[in-house]
Design a protein around this nucleic acid. Structure first.
Lengths: 335, 335
DNA sequence: CGCAAACTCTAGAACGTTCTAGTGCGCGTG
DNA sequence: CACGCGCACTAGAACGTTCTAGAGTTTGCG
C-alpha cells in the first residue's frame, strides 16, 4: 500500500521547472539571486510536488546545522515545562531543537552521544548528572550550557536560579506571617541543596532567629520528606521550608496523618512549583523558578557562544518568585 | 578558548593509518572485509583521534537512517513515561529515537515537520491531535503509529489501551466493594472518553445496575472534575469512576471541602496512573495503562512496517490494570 | 553609443559518508 | 605452471544539498 517512492529532491523540482538545482536551492532558502517570476514559479512547483528539503544533506554541505541539542530527564517534574520555553526561544532565533531524554535506564552519557552524532552546534543540559570532568571534555568540543546546576568549570556556561535568594524568600514570607520557629528540610547532596540551606540560614540570622535554626536531613523524594516529618513530630516547629515540592508533599502527608494540618497548625513551603503543586488538592506554597526567562537565557547564551559573541559573565542567575498558595498561613495561636 | 577545530572525519583517520577511507568505513561499521590486524589498528587510531561518525553524512549516503521519530506533548502527564519504554525498545532493535515535542505554543504539525526533515523512517505519535485526514496524508509518506488514540484510517497503525475494559475493571472493583450507586464523570470529546463511558455502562448493566447508570459531564482537567463534583453534591453516589486522574483529583478536592472524604464517604477511581496519583497525598485508585508493553509494541509495529513485514491486524489493544490505592473502600454504612 | 554595474542564472566542486566494482596478491589445485 | 578463488584493500561515484566562480543579459549613465 505504502508508496515510499523516491523522495522528491531539488533535482526533481529543477527538472520540472527547467532550471538548475542551484537556482531552486536559492529560491527555497529565500536567498537573494533569483527573479521574482522564476521564484514564484519554482515555489509553486515545489509545493505541487511536495518537495521537502533534506536537512541532513543541507547541513552536510553548509557545515552549519542551526541545531541545539537538549538533554532532559523524564523523571524530573518540570524539565518538560522548560522545553516549552526552549522551543519558543529557539524558534525566535531561527534555530531548531533536537531532544534527547535521560531515562531510568538511559544515562545522560548516551543521550549526549546521540546528540553529538546529530551534529548540533551547542548542547543545553537540564540539571546534568555528568561529572564536572566529563562536562569539561564536552565543552572542549562545543558550547555547553548547564541549566539549574552550578558547574565550577571555566568553559561551561550556567543558567540557574538564585537558590539562596529563593530560600530567603520562603523564610521572609513565613516570618512576615509571624513565624519564628522555622525548620528546613535539607536536600542532602542534590544540586542546589547547599544554596537553599545557606539561604535559609542567612535569612534566619537576618531576622535575628539564628538561635532557632533547625535543619533536618531530607532529600529529593516524597519518602525523604516523610522521614523528615517523623523527625519533626516530637517537637514540631510552626513552619517548614523544604528542598523541593516532592519532599514537601511527603512531609505534609505524614504531618496530616498525625493531626497537624497546614496551614492551621503548621505552614509548609516547597520549592520548584512542580505542576502537581498547583493541584487544588495539594495547593502548595512554593518557590517558582522563572522557567520562561531561564529558557530564553539558555538559548541566548548557547547561540552567543556558537556565533562567538563575547560574553561578560559565565553564569546567568535568575531571580526566583514565591508563589503563595494554601499551605502557609499566619502563626497559629497556641492554646 | 573554544577550539572548534574541524571535526575529525574518516579521511583523518585514514590518513593517520595510511589506508583508504573506504576501509576505515568498513572497520567503523564492523562490516566484513578487513584484516584483523588492520581492524585493530584503525580502531585504536579512531579512538585516539576522538573520531565520531557523522550520522547525517552516513544516512545521506546509505538511505537508511534507522531513526524513529516520536512526537509527544509536554502537557500530557504520562507521555514522558512512555518515552522511557520507547527508548528501551528502540535500543534493543538497533534503532535510534529522535524526539519532537508539542507545546502550548507549538502545534504537533510543527513537531511532525521537524521530524520529517530529519528523515526518520517512521513516526510514533503519542495521543496525536492531528485530524484524521492529516494523519492519512502523513501515512502515505511513511509508516505512522498512533498511540493511545483510535484512528479510523486504514494506513495508520494504532497501539492503545482497551479503555472499555479499563472502565469495566473500575466498576467491577467498586461493585466488589459493595457499591451500587456508581456515577461516571465523562471525558466529553477527549480521545478515549467514549470507550470509557461505554465500558462503564456495560459493566453497570452486567451487574444488573443499568437503572443506576449516572453520567455527569466532565473533561480532562482538574476544574472539569471540580465542576462535576458540584453537580453530584445534591445527591452524592457512593462511588465515582472518572475519565482521568486530573478530573478525579478536582472532584476529590471539592468533595472533601464539602465534608465528603474518600474512601470513608465516597470512593473514587481515576484513570491513567499519572505520576502524581502515586503521591501519598493523593493516593488515587486508578486504571493504569501498560506503558511498557505499549511502547514495545509501538516500536515493534513501526519497525515491522519499515521492513515491510506483513502484519495481520492494524490495531494493537493492550489490557489495562487496576491499581488499588487509598481512594476506594467498602460501601459506607449509612446512618 | 559604449562601457560598467547589476542582475539572473548555471556549472561544478564540496561536505563525510557508503557502495559498487574493481585490483592485486597469495595459495591450493588440476 | 597456469588457473581460479578468496581475501584485503582501493578508486571513484553517489547521496542531496550549498557554495564559489563565472557566464549571459539587462540596465544605467556619461
Amino acid at each position: 500500500m505504502q508508496t515510499p517512492d523516491r523522495r522528491i529532491t531539488l533535482a526533481d523540482v529543477a527538472a520540472e521547472a527547467g532550471v538548475s538545482t542551484a537556482l531552486v536551492s536559492i529560491v527555497m532558502r529565500g536567498a537573494p539571486g533569483a527573479g521574482a517570476a522564476t521564484r514564484e514559479r519554482v515555489l509553486e512547483i515545489a509545493q505541487r510536488l511536495g518537495y521537502q528539503p533534506d536537512s541532513r544533506a543541507r547541513l552536510l554541505r553548509s557545515g552549519r546545522s542551526r541545531l541545539l541539542g537538549v538533554v532532559f530527564d523524564v523523571r524530573h517534574p518540570f524539565h518538560v515545562d522548560v522545553l516549552t520555553g526552549l522551543y519558543d526561544a529557539a524558534d525566535k532565533a531561527g534555530y531548531q531543537l533536537t531532544l534527547s531524554a535521560e531515562t531510568p535506564r538511559r544515562a545522560d552519557r548516551a543521550a549526549v552521544d546521540d546528540l553529538l552524532q546529530d551534529r548540533c552546534e551547542a548542547l543545553i543540559l537540564l540539571t546534568p548528572s555528568l561529572r564536572t570532568a566529563d562536562l569539561a571534555a564536552l565543552a572542549a568540543r562545543l558550547p555547553v550550557v548547564a541549566m539549574m546546576r552550578a558547574v565550577r568549570q571555566r568553559d561551561v556556561d550556567v543558567v540557574q536560579t538564585d537558590d539562596r535568594r529563593g530560600a530567603r524568600q520562603a523564610v521572609d514570607h513565613l516570618v512576615g506571617l509571624g513565624h519564628r520557629r522555622i525548620a528546613h528540610v535539607d536536600g542532602g547532596t542534590q544540586h542546589g541543596a547547599a544554596e537553599r540551606r545557606t539561604g535559609y540560614e542567612e535569612a534566619m540570622r537576618d531576622h535575628g532567629l539564628g538561635g532557632l535554626i533547625r535543619i533536618v536531613p531530607g532529600g529529593s523524594g516524597e519518602e525523604d520528606g516523610a522521614r523528615a516529618a517523623a523527625g519533626l513530630l516530637a517537637d514540631p516547629p510552626t513552619a517548614v521550608t523544604t528542598f523541593n515540592d516532592l519532599a514537601a508533599t511527603g512531609l505534609l502527608d505524614v504531618l496530616r496523618r498525625h493531626g497537624l494540618d497546614a496551614p492551621r497548625d503548621i505552614s509548609v513551603v516547597g520549592y520548584d512549583d512542580s505542576s502537581f503543586s498547583r493541584l487544588a488538592h495539594v495547593d502548595l506554597t512554593t518557590v517558582a523558578q522563572d522557567i520562561e526567562e531561564m529558557a530564553t537565557r539558555a538559548v541566548g547564551r548557547a547561540i552567543d557562544r556558537i556565533e562567538t559573541v563575547p560574553v561578560a559573565r559565565r553564569e546567568v542567575v535568575i531571580a526566583p518568585r514565591l508563589v503563595v498558595r494554601g499551605t502557609t498561613g499566619p502563626l497559629p495561636i497556641r492554646s
